[in-house]
Amino acid sequence: MTSDLITVRGLKVSFASDAGIARVLDGVDLTIRRGEIMGLVGESGCGKTTLARAILGILPANAARIEAGQIRFEEHDILDLDEASLATQLRGRQIAYIPQDPFTAFNPVFTIGTQIDDLMRFKSPLLREGRLSARERRRADRLRVLEMLRLVQLPDPEGVLRKYPHEVSGGQRQRLMIAMALLPQPKLVIADEPTTALDVTVQAQILTVLKRLARDRGVAVLFTTHDLGTAYEICDRITVMYAGQEVEEAPVADFFARPSHPYTRKLLDSLPSSENGIRGITGEIPRLVDPPPGCRFHPRCERATEECRTTRPPTHAVAVAHDVRCHHPLQDSA
C-alpha cells in the first residue's frame, strides 16, 4: 500500500461552448496522499471545480469531454469505470463530497432525516461488514448519525433530523454536509469551496470542524478555494491552478515562505494587508477557447521572455516536494 491515495495524470477535459471548444483542464497532474488535506487554489474559472467533478465522475456528459489522462484512486481507474460501479462503489463510499452551496444542495421537499437515512441505507460502512440484520444496522446507523451530528457541533441533533432544509441556517446546513460526507467513512472527501457561501464568522468554525474530523479519522481532503487565507488555515499542501493547469505545488509552510511561480507570488501579494491595502493582479484570465501559446500566464507576467511566449514550461522541483511549472521561477523569498 503506497501513501498515494489518488493520482491524476495529464488530465485533459474540454467543454463545448458557444465560442468553441474550451480546454478547461489542460494536462493536470495532482497527487493526494492518504490523510492529507490538499488545497486547490485558483481564481474562478481556473478549473478547480471541473477537476473536483472529474474525480467524482460527475462531469455533465453532454457538455464535457475527457480528452486524455488518468485518475487513479487506489486500485481503481476512475475514468475506466462505468457509471454504475462508480455510483455504487466509489461515490459516497470511498469518495464523499461537500458542495459549495449548502443552501441548494439539500433537496427542499424532504426532511434532513429522510435524506440522511437514504444515504445510510446505501452508503453505511456497516453494509460492508454484512454481519448485522437490516434492522440492527438501521438502529446502529441511527446512533452513528446522532453521534456524528454532535461531532459537527449541531445543537439538538434529533430535532434537526425532523426539520426541512429551509428551516436550518446555512452554517448548520454545511455542518450537516460535513457530517454526511464523513458518515460513510470515506478515504477522500472532496470539498468544493465549502465555505464560500457562508458568513465569514461561520467560515472559521466550519473549517475547524472539518479539519479536526478529517484529522481524527485520517480522511484525505481535496479542498478547493479561491481564498489563500482559508487554504493556509486548513491545508497540509497547496496546489495552485491557473487556466487549466497546476502551476505550483508545495507544503503549506514552504508555499507561503517561498512562492516560486510569479502567479503564486501575485496571488499572495493580492491578499489585503495593512501596508499594501488591496492590490489586484493586472490583466485578465485567458480565454480557454484559444489560450495563449507557451506559458499561459505570460501575458500577465513581467518576467516573461521569448521562451515563455513560445514554449510550454515543464514542471520541475525547486525544493523537496515543491514543484513549479515555470521557465523562470522566483528564487528567493524576498
Partner: peptide, 17 residues
C-alpha cells in the same frame, strides 16, 4: 438541473431513487 441532483449524484445515491 438543480444542485441537489448534482449533490445526490456525487454522493452516490442510486439513480432510480
Amino acid at each position: 438541473q438543480s444542485n441537489y441532483v448534482l449533490y445526490e449524484t456525487a454522493m452516490g445515491y442510486p439513480r432510480r431513487l
